[in-house]
Nucleic acid binder design. Structure first.
Lengths: 134, 134
DNA sequence: ACTCCGGTTGAGAATCATTGTCATGAGGAA
DNA sequence: TTCCTCATGACAATGATTCTCAACCGGAGT
């Protein structure tokens, strides 16, 4: 039988941050924000909490171009992301055509246990207009 | 003016490996193969060569689930990959519909300098039948 | 409210891919 | 061949992430 995770201050704090943020953020960024808010949580615990949440599909995880893992609280169901490289602001998008296409391609080539990654990166309008400021 | 890269034994050796392999491989794997073949090349040099080749778009690079960067000599032009998680064997695929979809989504949301990542992972038929061998 | 058990925490060490350093080596143009 | 550079490679350094393990605390039972 699987044990329900305990309701600790630390895990609540991490979830609260994810609630507030609207874009993707790294574990280290979340750790910093927690420190700023005065409800410090150990870095290891931040990583562990995010892992658990990601496995439970309560948050989405993806890698940026530098290979860092970013996390975000998302709506349920399979979807993809349009992510601002600069600020992490994110738009959730659906691509039912893409899903079918990917599965068909995989099947045609005899691949099993298929998964796919699809993310769109760009610079959002806000960050574009904030260029070259002092 | 841009200098042409020098034609060194080490770079030739790395390219030769990429020629032989048909799937994606990590820098460390390529380094190991070079060592096995007796034409040892420093690990730093393997990394540098692959970086240069990737920037020149002579090889494609992607990250596996563990965050490792994998390299492969691919055909020219924009395309995506169906990659075997177990052996790295790869099928190049095109998805013109996906490209247009991604660009349209980004534009509709005011994002600039758009790029996208799309990879399909699975277990290929060979690796599926090789399961559970001694 | 008290106890106790086992999951949870956190400071620091460890891991591991990747990058930086810099003295030495070797393309290749003249 | 000479010489100027860029390239190489052994090694150190980086940085995100994971591991370790003793101390801690949530919460179920009493």
């Amino acid at each position: 039988m699987v044990e329900a995770p305990r309701n600790t201050r630390q895990r609540r704090a991490v979830v609260a941050i994810l609630d507030d943020l609207d874009g993707f953020a790294s574990a280290q960024e979340i750790h910093d924000i927690l420190k700023q808010r005065g409800e410090s949580v150990g870095l290891s615990t931040v990583y562990r909490s995010l892992q658990v949440l990601a496995e439970a599909a309560e948050v989405d995880a993806l890698r940026n171009a530098d290979g860092e893992v970013l996390y975000r609280q998302c709506s349920a169901g399979h979807h993809h992301h349009l992510v601002c490289r600069a600020c992490g602001r994110t738009v959730e998008v659906e691509g039912p055509t893409v899903e079918r296409w990917a599965d068909r391609i995989a099947e045609e080539n005899g691949f099993r246990d298929v998964a796919h990654t699809l993310e769109i990166f760009g610079t959002c309008d806000r960050c574009t207009s904030n260029r070259d400021l002092p």
